[in-house]
Amino acid sequence: MTHVFLFSYEIPINEEDSEVKIIGVYSALENAEKALLEYQKCDKFKDYSERFYIGKWKLNKDFWSDGYVTVTL
């Protein structure tokens, strides 16, 4: 296995910010899509299905190598 599929959901906090919640990590895209179909049936999520995301992630790889960035406005 070289990749996993991360299934997540975005929750808006305000007009500019949001928070991402990880629902699950799956070994195959088909498994993540099956979970997505189940969550879309839930009353809590059925009107917001556009906020779900399935991403393919390579194993044994760093994805955040730049470190923190400070922005002053």
Rank of each mutant, 00 (worst) to 15 (best):
V69R: 14
L36N: 00
T2F: 09
N60R: 10
F5C: 02
V4A: 00
F45V: 03
Q40S: 08
K44A: 12
E19P: 00
A32S: 01
L6Y: 03
G24E: 07
F7G: 04
F5D: 02
N31C: 02
I22F: 08
P12I: 01
V25W: 05
S18E: 11
Y39N: 03
E10N: 08
E10H: 06
D43R: 12
T2A: 10
Y9V: 01
T2N: 15
R51S: 06
N14E: 09
R51M: 07
K56V: 00
T70N: 14
E30G: 01
W57F: 14
C42T: 02
L59G: 00
Y48R: 13
S18A: 12
F5A: 03
E19G: 03
V4C: 06
E30N: 07
H3Y: 15
P12M: 01
D43P: 05
T72H: 11
A28I: 02
N31A: 10
F63H: 08
I11C: 05
N60S: 07
T2V: 04
Q40D: 06
N31I: 04
C42G: 06
F52I: 04
E33N: 11
S8Y: 02
L36S: 00
L37C: 04
I23V: 08
L29T: 03
E33C: 03
K34A: 09
A28E: 10
T72A: 10
L59E: 06
S49Q: 09
W57N: 00
K21Q: 12
W64K: 11
I23Q: 02
D66S: 14
N31H: 09
F5S: 02
F7R: 00
A32C: 02
D43I: 05
T72Q: 13
T72W: 10
L36F: 07
V20G: 04
N14H: 06
F7L: 06
V25C: 14
F5P: 02
G24W: 08
F5L: 02
V69D: 08
T70V: 15
S18H: 13
E30A: 06
L59T: 05
D43Q: 11
D62K: 10
E16G: 04
A35S: 09
V71M: 11
E30C: 01
Y9N: 00
V71C: 08
S65P: 00
L29K: 14
K58V: 03
Q40M: 14
N31P: 00
V20Y: 10
T70K: 14
V71L: 12
I13S: 04
G55I: 08
M1Y: 05
D47Q: 14
K58A: 05
W57A: 06
I11Q: 10
E16N: 13
I23L: 15
E30S: 13
K44T: 08
L59P: 01
A35F: 01
Y53R: 13
R51H: 09
D43G: 07
S27N: 14
M1P: 08
Y53C: 13
D17G: 09
K34Q: 07
L6V: 10
G67Y: 09
E38W: 00
R51V: 04
P12C: 06
W64L: 13
